[in-house]
Amino acid sequence: MDNEVFTTLVGFLLLILLLLFFLPGRGLFSKWKRALLDSKRVRIEDALKHLYDCEYNNTGCSLDSISGNLSLKRDEAAGLIQKLQSLGLVSLGRDKIELTGEGRNYALRIIRVHRLWERYLADETSIHASEWHERAEDVEHILSAEQADELAAQIGNPLTDPHGDPIPSSEGKMPVKQGVPITQFCVNDHVKIIHLEDEPKTIFAQLVAEGLYVGQHLRIIEISEERVKFEVDDEVIVLAPIIAANISVVKFDETNRVRRNLKKLSELKVGDGGLVVGISNLIRGQQRRRLLDLGVVPGTKIKAEIQSLGGDPTGYRIRGATIAIRKKQASQIFIKEINE
């Protein structure tokens, strides 16, 4: 039956064509959508952001750093600066490029959207950490200030993005910079991570892969030219100083609260119990509030009661109720064993 074979083939061909067109991320449709983004405005906004970063971190900005950061040729970068100047967004000093008030406000607006979006992705969407920055880079040029305010309200007006950077308020207010690179501390200092620099990406990816996150408590073991060694959640991590310099920390004095000899809730065997010590900051937003509401707060007695037939989730007895929690979350809840 040639006819049959023919229609079958045509049908499958049609399906494949449809797929090609609408393939998310790579299909023609999404390519076309991306091309709609106004590339000139994007460049201006990226340059402003970079200038603001320099200002915030007190590192001077130069034509080179701009061309490097935006991957532009030198003369393109120079053209861009001129454009910014003609728009009244920057002023050129002797060998300094500075933001004007208007330029700073513009930059803060972009940064606000960027950080809010990262926060939104982290809290509400379960998109992997390595993708937040990239996606926010796109969205920051699309969302209006009003939309950003709406988003902020919806996710509870967060103060910081998931990397620990403060989110400017809608009036463009920003708290003063806190924290210094971990490399400037001494052996045996107890410190708390308040920021993980998300650029360059490869370094950030490495930090994430090491399991580091904002809010974590560390004890420094060794600081030298060759390496930085510290203890965190019962693990010892060794990093090259270049990489460690991307971790900003503040001194942390409540030494008794540094988590030592802790177990993860996920390690409890059915029938065993423990005492909750804390929830890791990797659980944020809605998920965190939900766990707290269910009674997972420091000092709560918790007992593994039943395991689902797939081995995950596990039902835990918490304050008189049985609550099922997935392994992924349970491994972010720290407990102390109790001997009864």
Partner: peptide
């Protein structure tokens, strides 16, 4: 609808 599974908590 790209994304990994997020949290799950259910009272039994």
């Amino acid at each position: 609808l790209k994304g990994e599974a997020s949290a799950f908590s259910l009272e039994l």
